[in-house]
Each structure stands twice: as structure tokens, then as C-alpha cells.
Design a protein around this nucleic acid. Structure first.
Lengths: 131, 131
DNA sequence: GACGAATATGCGGTTAATCGAATATTCGTC
DNA sequence: GACGAATATTCGATTAACCGCATATTCGTC
């Protein structure tokens, strides 16, 4: 049952925190790890689980892998992403992560050393239309 | 995080099947077990998990324990119960269980040997108003 | 093709979930 | 208070999830 796989994804705090961040826009692994304050291998493994359940999609950008929410999530997933968005206020972790993200994103955008910021900016523009 | 506990509940097929049945109305343990074709201790254990997550409530009726959906489920749970209802058509198990339930319920109602049928009928009438 | 940054995977250990089978509890009846 | 029906719990075993740590892979640069 595909649905169960989705629920299995959602019953881990780290994965919920990742989804919470991706609701704001795409991010690559290293920035997810930095924002969440967790080890990179841990993030990678959770991202793999999320991808396996069809929750996220990836795109290579040089040696970064950019993760974003799936463009066509199944019904259950879509519903729960909306739930997550509504729930942000009630959970301090989510709010905290979003603040961290905002700060880190600002820094990243200020750097013009590589092409990642440009691509992320593009993706953000796209996703803010669909979400 | 309370939400995670809810998701943990939802990522087991047996529990989803139980919730699917309870969406139609309250049932006691032995009938749940019979309809699902599973052992009674297994059902009891899953019901305990559901109760722990605030998904179901109980009521004693002689030596039966009647289980029903929680009157005030939290937001995430409520949303996913609606999802479950929408999803019934797509999952053969759910449809099959509902047919089994209908048949068994009809038989049970025909019996006038005990007070269980009467109470169940009452509860069904109530719940069909709220749901 | 060697190097470094970013990402992914393998491995061993620990904890949590689930199960079947047996047993305990609860409650009404006699 | 003994009995039986319905339900709940305990036990040991198996499986799955998660983690930290180390290592492998990928890809662009020099």
C-alpha cells in the first residue's frame, strides 16, 4: 500500500523538519544539514527515504544536489504537506528552522562565487508560483 | 511531537483497516477481528495503539468493548480520516472489509439475544449525524 | 588523472514495532 | 463464588528503523 510508505516517511521528526524547510523552497543537502544542525550523512539518508516515497525530487547543479518537493505528490502526501504548513506555528522547532533557513539563505544569496545561488533563486521563483 | 504519534499509527495496514471500518460506525473487538479475519489479541493491541494516539474511544457494553472513532480528533488525524474515506475505492482491501462488515453487521442486527445490537444501533445513529 | 567539495553508501550496534502463542483480567450469569 | 465469553496483557523472538562513524562515489577544477 503506497499510502503506508508515505506515513512511514512522516513519522520521523527529521523528515518532517526537512519537508517544512522544503515548503519554503528547494535546498541542497549541505544547506539542509547546516540549517538543521545535523550531520550530512543523516540528512542524505532521510532524503533518500523521502525520495523513495515520492515526496521529493532532485536536480544536480554542479556538485550540489538540489532537493525540492515533488511536483506531483499523491493525495495523502499533498494533504499532509498542507497540514504541516498549518502546524508550523504550534511547533517551536519548525519556526526555529525557518528562521535559520532565512538567515542562511540570505548569506548564500549574497555570495556570487558559484552558480548555485542563481539556480536556487530560479527554482524559488518557480516554486512560489506552484505552491 | 504529538503529530508523529498520529503518523506512527497510520503506517500500519491493520490499523488503517480498523479505522476504515470505524468510519462506518462503532464496532466491538470480536467483530473487528471477525471482519478482518485476524486474531483477537492482535486487534486488541492495535486498538490500544490507536487509543493511545487519540484516534479511538471506548465504551463498555456488558462484556463487550465498543470502539469508535474519537469524537474530537486532532487536526492531522481528522484530515487523514477524510483522506482514508476518499481512498477507499483505490484499495481493494478496504472495499473488501466494508463488504464483510456489512454482511456481519446485518447478521448481528438480526440477533435479539443480547443488548449489544441495540447499543450498536444507537451509536450508529449518533455517529451518522456527526460524521 | 590528481585533488577537493558535495553527496551517497556500508557497516555494526541500539532501539522500537510487530507477531504468535499462552495467559490474565473483566464482567455478567448461574 | 464458579464458570464462560469477551477482552487485555505478557513473553520471547523476529524484523525494521535509526544512528554514528568511516568510506565510497561523483563531478568540476587544476
Amino acid at each position: 500500500m503506497k499510502t503506508i510508505q508515505v506515513y512511514r516517511c512522516l513519522c520521523d521528526e527529521t523528515r518532517l523538519r526537512i519537508l517544512n524547510l522544503l515548503l519554503e523552497g528547494p535546498l541542497c543537502v549541505c544547506h539542509l544539514a547546516a540549517v538543521l544542525g545535523l550531520e550530512q550523512p543523516k540528512i542524505s539518508r532521510h532524503l533518500k527515504a523521502l525520495k523513495g516515497a515520492g515526496a521529493v525530487e532532485t536536480e544536480r547543479c554542479y556538485n550540489w544536489t538540489i532537493y525540492r518537493l515533488a511536483a506531483r505528490p499523491n493525495a495523502v502526501l499533498e494533504t499532509n504537506l498542507k497540514c504541516l504548513q498549518d502546524m508550523r506555528g504550534e511547533e517551536a522547532v519548525f519556526a526555529h528552522d525557518l528562521r535559520q533557513r532565512a538567515r542562511m539563505f540570505k548569506e548564500l544569496m549574497a555570495e556570487s562565487c558559484c552558480e548555485l545561488p542563481a539556480r536556487l533563486r530560479e527554482l524559488c521563483r518557480e516554486s512560489s508560483q506552484t505552491v
